[in-house]
C-alpha cells in the first residue's frame, strides 16, 4: 500500500515536471509574441527605430528566438537564471529579496487563514441552515464579491488615516520587534486573509455538506454518534480530497496573485516584480517569476492530489 502510494507520488511529481516545461516554453513564446520588446519599452515615447535597434543589438535581442530560448535553457540547467535585460543585474539577486518578502506575507496569511477557514467552514456545514450559517454565507460571499482594492483602500483609510493605529505602507525595514511585525503586517495580512478565507470557507462548507448527506453519515446520526465525532471521524476524512484541493488553489495565488495588495501597501513582492517585468518585457525575470509561481502551484496541488489519493485509498482500504 505505501509502495503503491510512493509510486503514485513519483508519477505525480513526474507529470508535474511536464507542466513546468509546458509553462516555461509557453511563457517564453507568449512574451515574445507580445508587441514590442524591452528596447521599445525602455525608450518608451522617445523611441526611434535606430535607437531601439542599437539597444536591441547590445542586448542580443536581434538573435533568433529559439537561440535565445536555448541560451536561457542552458543557463537554467546550470542553475543560472541569467541577468535582467533591463538592469543588467543577476536575476537571482533581484528575485531573492522579493521572494523573501512574498513568502513572509504568504506565510503569515496562511497561518492566519487556513485554521480559521477550516474551523468556520466545518462550523457552517455542521450547523447548516442555522442563523450562524446564513450570516457566515452572506458575509463570506460579500467579502469575495467586493473588489480587493476597495477592501484594502477602505481598511487603510479607516485604520491608518482616521485612527492612526497602523502605518499606511508596509515597510518591513521598520520591523525590529514582534509588536512592530504585527503592526506592519496587520493590514495586508488581514485583508488578504479575509479574501482567501472567504473562498476556502465556501468550498469547505460545500464539500462537507455534500459528505454529510452520504448514507453512512445518516446512518451514524441514526446510531446516535455525537456530532463532533461524526465530523472528525466520519465526514472529514471523506471530504479531505476536495477540501485540500480548495485550500491548495486558494493558497497558490498568494504568491503571484496579490498585485493589488502589494501595490496598495507598497510592499515589494514577487507579484509586483512580475507585472513590472511583463510591462517592460524583461524576459529572464518573467521566466523566473513564472517558474516560481508554477512551482508553488504544482507543489501545493500535487500535495493536495496526494492527500486526496491517500484518503481515497484509505477510504477504500477501510
Amino acid at each position: 500500500m505505501s509502495a503503491g502510494l510512493a509510486r503514485l507520488v513519483a508519477r505525480r511529481i513526474g507529470t508535474a515536471l511536464c507542466s513546468l516545461v509546458f509553462v516555461v516554453v509557453a511563457i517564453f513564446f507568449m512574451t515574445a509574441a507580445l508587441p514590442g520588446d524591452v528596447a521599445d519599452m525602455l525608450l518608451g515615447q522617445n523611441a526611434t527605430p535606430a535607437a531601439a535597434q542599437a539597444l536591441r543589438h547590445s542586448l542580443h535581442l536581434d538573435q533568433p528566438l529559439w537561440l535565445r530560448f536555448m541560451h536561457w535553457c542552458a543557463g537554467m540547467l546550470h542553475g543560472d537564471p541569467g541577468t535582467s535585460l533591463l538592469t543588467g543585474r543577476p536575476v537571482s539577486e533581484m528575485l531573492a529579496p522579493r521572494l523573501y518578502n512574498s513568502l513572509l506575507l504568504a506565510g503569515a496569511t496562511t497561518v492566519v487563514s487556513v485554521p480559521l477557514a477550516l474551523l468556520l467552514g466545518l462550523a457552517c456545514a455542521t450547523w447548516r441552515d442555522t442563523h450562524f450559517d446564513r450570516v457566515m454565507t452572506v458575509l463570506t460571499l460579500g467579502v469575495v464579491s467586493v473588489p480587493a482594492f476597495l477592501i484594502a483602500t477602505v481598511a487603510v483609510f479607516v485604520f491608518a488615516v482616521q485612527f492612526r493605529i497602523v502605518p499606511a505602507l508596509s515597510d518591513i525595514r521598520s520591523i525590529h520587534s514582534v509588536g512592530q511585525f504585527i503592526l506592519t503586517f496587520a493590514m495586508p495580512v488581514s485583508t488578504l486573509a479575509s479574501i482567501t478565507m472567504a473562498q476556502m470557507i465556501r468550498m469547505i462548507r460545500a464539500c462537507m455538506i455534500d459528505v454529510f448527506s452520504a448514507p453512512y453519515i445518516e446512518m451514524a446520526v441514526l446510531k446516535g454518534v455525537p456530532p463532533i465525532r461524526i465530523v472528525l471521524h466520519h465526514a472529514l476524512p471523506n471530504a479531505i480530497g476536495p477540501v485540500a484541493n480548495a485550500i491548495a488553489l486558494s493558497l497558490s495565488s498568494l504568491l503571484g496573485g496579490v498585485v493589488v495588495i502589494e501595490t496598495i501597501f507598497n510592499y515589494p513582492g514577487l507579484a509586483q516584480l512580475m507585472v513590472d517585468s511583463v510591462m517592460l518585457r524583461d524576459v529572464p525575470i518573467i521566466q523566473s517569476c513564472a517558474l516560481l509561481f508554477c512551482l508553488t502551484y504544482l507543489f501545493l496541488t500535487t500535495l493536495a492530489d496526494i492527500v486526496a489519493l491517500a484518503s481515497v485509498r484509505k477510504g477504500r482500504g477501510a
Binding site: 507542466s19 509546458f22 509553462v23 509557453a26 507568449m30 511583463v278 513564472a290 502551484y297
Partner: peptide, 11 residues
Amino acid sequence: DGILSIPSLLC
C-alpha cells in the same frame, strides 16, 4: 495546470 500557472495579465 499549465494554463493556471500562466499569469492572467500575460494572457
